[in-house]
């Protein structure tokens, strides 16, 4: 019996030292084992409320500090960052809700839109594309590095790479690779003296549709959502169920008239919509007159139009990055690519 409790206390000590104190993990494991022994000797009994209370308080503190306070340390300091619009205009992000949008957020909250709509764009995987450019001098070495990469990973050369990598042109070596493959390709090619560039693409059903690279995309955002997006949300209404579409980027997809018509009768836009009508947001002065949106409806639509969060690139969540030419320094070629040193010298 005591072996169980003392084990848990040891586990606790180990976890605390690893997660909260940031100890090197073998050290944390050792510490946990030591604590297991120590607590085991103490022979803790479960018979007094005092034991229970003490253990519970300890667990409560670990839970609160390990999950909530630690996250608070990381996220409470978020500030504006610079990003750019689709047309390249730089601006500070995120933009606080302007005009009536703040009032609209209250309407959104009061109407419980969060019961059916999420506001979080997710991604499922990351895919990497590797491009390379060889010069006249090191063309042979780069070609050899590429073919070695293809042989090793079983991937097939395509495009310019299949034609033997013409010198002086950026050619795609591999698309949609996982991190390990991309890392191999990068190391081989860089060691052979080629210019290499790696592009990161987020893939997932929520992201932009692309016939080849993201065929299941639903165009709900250009990137995944991150904490930065919700800096001004009171509170962020992330939602947990998608009876309707995700709204994190609705402002970039819909215009005012469409949103109004959806609120009045969702079936006008989508026949099998499950969304209830929101007649209480519209008023009718006289019987035959068309229903006019109330101030609440206008504010709600203002708020929805302000939701463009998954649209702008952030350092932690890039929108598909364009390839940029870059020459790796020979010194940065990792040591694990030591076997490629010969082609490197040959290239020079």
């Amino acid at each position: 019996m005591t072996i169980g409790l003392s084990f848990l206390l040891g586990l606790l000590a180990g976890s605390v030292s690893y997660f909260m104190l940031g100890l090197w993990w073998p050290l944390a494991v050792l510490l946990g084992l030591f604590a297991w022994l120590a607590f085991g000797l103490l022979d803790v009994k479960m018979d007094s409320t005092f034991t229970l209370l003490g253990g519970m308080l300890l667990v409560f503190c670990v839970s609160l500090s390990g999950m909530v306070l630690r996250a608070n340390d990381q996220l409470s300091g978020l500030q504006y960052v610079d990003t750019q619009d689709v047309d390249g205009t730089e601006f500070r992000y995120p933009v606080p809700p302007l005009g009536q949008a703040r009032y609209g957020e209250k309407i959104y909250k009061a109407s419980g839109c969060v019961a059916c709509h999420t506001q979080q764009v997710t991604h499922e995987s990351v895919a990497l594309d590797v491009k390379a450019m060889a010069g006249e001098k090191n063309l042979a070495a780069v070609q050899e590095a590429a073919s070695r990469f293809y042989k090793l990973t079983g991937r097939k050369a395509s495009g310019g790479a299949a034609l033997g990598l013409p010198a002086g042109e950026w050619e795609t070596i591999v698309t949609g690779a996982n991190a390990a493959d991309a890392s191999k390709a990068r190391n081989f090619l860089a060691a052979a003296g080629a210019s290499v560039d790696v592009q990161v693409r987020f893939r997932g059903e929520d992201l932009m549709h692309n016939d080849l690279q993201n065929p299941e995309g639903r165009n709900w955002g250009r990137r995944r959502s991150v904490a930065q997006d919700y800096l001004f949300a009171e509170p962020p209404m992330l939602g947990s169920v998608r009876i309707g579409p995700d709204l994190a980027n609705i402002g970039a997809r819909y215009n005012r008239d469409m949103l109004m018509s959806v609120l009045l009768d969702p079936k006008t836009l989508k026949k099998d919509s499950k969304m209830p009508q929101h007649g209480f947001l519209f008023e009718q002065a006289e019987k035959d007159e068309q229903r006019q949106p109330t101030r609440e409806a206008e504010a709600l639509v203002d708020y929805l139009l302000s939701l463009k969060s998954a649209n702008y690139p952030l350092p932690e969540a890039p929108v598909d990055q364009p390839f940029t030419s870059s020459m790796p320094k020979p010194a940065t070629a990792p040591a694990e690519a030591a076997d490629t040193a010969k082609p490197d010298e040959a290239g020079k």
Binding site: L5, L12, V59, A71, Q120, R224, P236
Partner: peptide, 24 residues
């Protein structure tokens, strides 16, 4: 039961964040 008590208390009190949540 004692084993379950402490395990469930310790690990039931942490977590509950979905895989796609916009948090680190």
């Amino acid at each position: 039961a004692q084993f379950a008590f402490w395990v469930m208390l310790l690990f039931g009190s942490v977590g509950g964040v979905g895989p796609g949540a916009p948090v680190p």
